[in-house]
């Protein structure tokens, strides 16, 4: 991608590095996202994907590198400040407020944009309906099924009215029908103008959804491009399946 195209991008990460003791979790990573884009972030377990999310969303501070969101640096900002700028995330291990109802969970997110409690409740109701949780709005979040918790996690993030949404494995642990439904939901969110950065292990889903894909392995970017190109990339196949499969897969 040309440098001037990156300057105007929604998210611009350059030279991002993070080390945990002896482990280089993320190494000199650069990536950019355009407004409205759906970018898939894939890689084998332990590749550093969630660390990238934690760095971008402010839950971890980088050792090196720059993160610009909407043209402004967000390095060093607290997670709540980053959220207020329009960058929301979900957690791989969902973190509902277990004793609060689904609606009250989402209301907490809505309060970020609507200080008035009644307005926030209206907004929350709309978001709950949008993700298909309306019949369970009054249920305590702690008693939801995993699939519904993942929806709730997305609903809360959406309620903060983000321009960029970071989704961390929202399909993990779901059955085929549930995945189909959540893929439709994600596509719909993206079509409504929200850019999405997607960590996902479900290849079929991530290939279908993403405009572009970035592949991480041992903290480094090893490939980037449209889904079809990435799927046939030798280094990607090697990272996922091991060296001996590269030839077979390409044949």
């Amino acid at each position: 991608m040309a440098p001037d195209a990156r300057a105007g991008s929604l998210l611009d990460v350059r030279g991002l590095s993070k080390r945990f003791g002896g482990l280089q979790a993320v190494s000199d990573l650069s990536l950019a996202m355009a407004e409205g884009e759906m970018l898939g972030l894939i890689g084998p377990n332990g590749a550093g994907k969630t660390t990238v999310f934690n760095l971008v969303s402010g839950f971890l501070g980088p050792d090196k590198g720059e993160i610009r969101f909407g043209g402004r640096s967000i390095v060093g900002l607290k997670p709540h400040a980053i959220c207020r700028q329009g960058l929301a995330r979900t957690f791989q291990i969902v973190r509902p407020f277990p004793h609060l109802s689904v609606l009250d969970n989402v209301k907490v997110g809505a309060l970020t944009r609507h200080a008035n409690a009644r307005e926030a409740l209206e907004q929350a109701r709309a978001v709950v309906a949008r993700v298909g949780l309306a019949p369970k709005a009054a249920v305590a979040a702690g008693s939801l099924t995993l699939a519904d918790r993942k929806r709730l996690e997305m609903a809360r993030a959406l309620a903060t009215e983000p321009t960029l949404l970071l989704l961390d494995e929202v399909m993990a642990g779901l059955n085929a029908t549930e995945i189909e439904a959540i893929v439709r939901l994600i596509a719909g969110i993206n079509e409504s103008g929200v850019s999405i950065l997607l960590i996902e292990h479900n290849m079929r889903a991530v290939m279908a959804l993403s405009h572009r894909i970035v592949v991480l392995s041992f903290g480094e970017k090893i490939a980037e491009g449209p889904p079809s190109a990435v799927a046939s990339d030798a280094r990607v196949i090697e990272a996922y399946l091991g060296e001996e499969y590269v030839h077979t897969a390409q044949a």
């Binding site: 997670p79 400040a81 995330r89 957690f91 509902p96 907490v108 309060l111 409690a117 309620a159």
Partner: peptide
């Protein structure tokens, strides 16, 4: 809002931060 935030903080502080709660 203050009260809703306090209750949410009691439930899960990290989730609160992610949702824009200082």
């Amino acid at each position: 809002r203050f009260g809703a935030y306090l209750v949410a903080i009691r439930e899960d502080e990290n989730a609160c931060e992610a949702l824009g709660v200082d």
